[in-house]
Design a binder for these strands. Structure first.
Length: 595
RNA sequence: GGGGUGGUAGCUCAAUUUUGGUUAGAGCACCGGCCUGUCACGUCGGAGGUUACGAGUUCAAGCCUCGUCCAUCCCGCCA
């Protein structure tokens, strides 16, 4: 069997040629006499024509064709009659008069409509995943996978061109504390012992730097056993990178170039040659997030100083307790209904806000509010001027502990932008977030945790502060790349001084013995001449999805899992034979839930 | 672990003003007839349902109550 062309390439200049095509029946239109079939493959669609006058036997076979039959045809390319061209498809000027038809395979009626355009594909995710092999036939989802493939090609080209080596690292690793829950793999030959699947190749890539590899990259599968979201899968792919003898600026400079050379080229846009920087504290204050969406303004302002002078009990007590009051001017939102404001109040409640204070700015910039009696006119005007509100705006205020006030306000900012349609899907706003805190206090753990990971180096000027035990104000040499409010990558300069590393472990509450057991080999390696090094990792699926303006990464992964980390198609995870468990020295111990 | 939303034909959804009322509808898809230039072909007809599962309230439950399961979005979590 020989295809002379694919289904997306025949044009006017091919008229008169005898061609052979193979593909799937996308749609069949039977006009009683003549039958049209849209033949589809990865490359496109071509209309083929069965005419009873030209070839009655073939026409008779064509009568049996149904959607998703796999066929092979031979015929002559012809111009379509005047006025019958279809400008919606690239092959729309021509069609193929079929002289020979072979049904290579029949198909049951597909449970999902493969030929529907993307907007029409509203089946729920689980159903699509059950028939994923059919779902993947849809042209728009094939386009996603092909785009990712093209992107990966450009990624490889970029790193090879810049002196990076592609080195594979193990998938069977040692389980380590800190970070996400590990996926575990039992060892048969080592009874009772387990491997962990890598959450990322973090330690291996640092060891490669110690080994003198200088510049490393890998397209690496990573595994995290945590609850899932639309943009989080249990296994996902990182573009993982590490470089020796670099500082923060060197790494960010390299990836400014990466954004231009790879993302810009594949998606055909021109990013700024140098992506802007914003330090973490500024991001948290102005945007209430460490991944600000900078496609629109709606900046948040701190009004604690004004609030604490007022007679409004809520504001006063929050500030007195060390909390903050943050405000925002919702431009042109003065006509929000009471219901909308109530909904927004409930919305910010999900992020811990106890309430939402709102004020209208009317003609002559007069501030009107139900809680007006607690404030002087000067205070109301000060709120207005601080948040930058004008006639026609609505002001919102949230009071609470600093982190709560910031994040609740940040979410409110995003929600207002969504309601007002400010998230322009065509814009691409990149920003490096820098100077993250080294540590973050965990209420649940009752101790400080590494905000990035425990191998991250503090800012050189904050090292003494850290060594003296001031964890709160110590910032890290860490950086995240954010695009349109999505964290698409992140990294840090690593600690290369074993003494500093030991100190960080101690500050994180790990004893010398624990470190020895969990990280012994790693700490030892640093005693033999580790170069200064740093790197970062991009979430491959998230980069592609975000550049395509999609929130969910599932349509960019051929076989994703659903929210319960299972696959409806192959029913995995599943039970295994007792013999397998015995081999692994494992017995199942689950509480009786059913029966 | 917690919260929101949802589960009705193969798919996407509907089932009204006051807690319920007789035979659970539509579009797409499917099957059959007609139709020789359509391209989301048209047209006529047909088939298709344990209303997720279980219990309860009631003369009567798709609708009300409770439980279970599943999906999805979010919080926690995800260095």
């Amino acid at each position: 069997m020989k295809r002379t062309h694919n289904c997306g390439e025949l044009r006017k200049q091919d008229v008169g040629k005898i061609v052979s095509l193979a593909g799937w029946v996308d749609r069949r239109r039977d006009l009683g006499g003549v039958i049209f079939v849209d033949l589809r493959d990865k490359y496109g669609k071509t209309q083929v024509v069965f005419n009873p006058d030209r070839n009655p036997e073939v026409h008779k076979i064509a009568d049996k064709l149904r959607n998703e039959f796999v066929i092979y045809i031979t015929g002559e390319v012809q111009n379509r009659p005047e006025g019958m061209q279809n400008d919606k498809i690239s092959t729309g000027d021509i069609d193929v008069k079929v002289d020979n038809l072979q049904i290579l395979n029949e198909s049951l009626t597909p449970p999902i409509a493969i030929n529907d355009p993307k907007e029409e594909c509203k089946e729920n995710d689980d159903f699509r995943l059950t028939y994923r092999y059919l779902d993947l036939r849809r042209p728009w989802i094939q386009k996603n996978l092909m785009l990712k493939s093209r992107f990966l090609k450009a990624v490889y080209e970029f790193f090879y061109a810049n002196g990076f080596e592609n080195v594979e690292t193990p998938v069977l690793c040692k389980s380590t504390p800190e970070g996400a829950r590990d996926y575990l793999v039992p060892s048969r030959v080592n009874p009772g012992k387990f491997y962990a699947l890598p959450q990322s190749p973090q330690q291996y890539k640092q060891l490669l730097m110690i080994a003198g590899m200088d510049r490393y990259f890998q397209i690496a599968k990573c595994f995290r056993d945590e609850d899932l979201r639309a943009d989080r899968q249990p296994e996902f792919t990182q573009i993982d990178v590490e470089m020796s003898f670099v500082n923060q600026e060197d790494v960010m400079e390299m990836f400014d170039k990466f954004v231009t050379d790879v993302m810009g080229k594949v998606w055909n846009f021109t990013p700024p040659r140098h992506i802007r920087h914003m330090d973490w504290h500024e991001a948290m204050l102005k945007y209430g997030s460490d991944k600000p969406d900078l496609r629109f303004d709606l900046e948040i302002h701190d009004v604690s100083d004004i609030a604490k002078e007022s007679n409004f009990g809520v504001f006063k007590s929050v500030v007195a307790a060390g909390g903050k009051v943050r405000g925002i001017a919702a431009k042109g939102c003065i006509d929000f209904t009471r219901k909308q404001i109530d909904d927004l109040t409930a919305f910010v409640g999900r992020y811990g806000a106890k309430g939402l204070v709102w004020m209208r700015v009317k003609e002559d910039d007069v501030v009107e509010t139900q809680v007006g009696k607690f404030f002087t006119t000067e205070q109301l005007n000060a709120f207005r001027d601080t948040v930058g509100a004008k006639n026609g705006d609505l002001m919102f205020f949230i009071a609470g502990p600093e982190k709560t006030a910031a994040t609740a306000m940040g979410q409110l900012r995003l929600e207002i932008a969504r309601m007002k349609g400010l998230k322009d899907p065509k814009r691409r706003e990149f920003v490096w977030i820098t100077e993250f805190p080294m540590f973050e206090y965990s209420e649940t753990e009752g101790r400080y945790m590494a905000m990035h990971h425990p191998f991250t180096a503090p800012l050189p000027e904050h090292l003494d502060m850290m060594l003296s035990g001031n964890l709160k104000d110590c910032n890290a040499q860490a950086y995240d790349l954010v695009l349109n409010g999505v964290e698409i990558g992140g990294g840090s300069i690593r600690i290369h001084d074993p003494k500093v590393q030991e100190k960080v472990f101690r500050l994180l509450g790990l004893s010398e013995e624990q470190v020895k057991e969990k990280f012994g080999f790693f700490v030892d390696a640093f005693k033999y001449g580790a170069p200064p090094h740093g790197g970062l990792a991009f979430g491959l699926d998230r980069v592609v999805a975000t550049l395509e303006g999609e929130d969910s990464i599932r349509d960019f992964i051929a076989f994703p899992k659903n929210t319960s980390a299972s696959s409806p198609m192959d029913q995995c995870p599943s039970d295994v034979d007792l013999a397998q468990l015995n081999d692994l020295h494992i017995s199942i111990n689950i509480a009786d839930k059913k029966k």
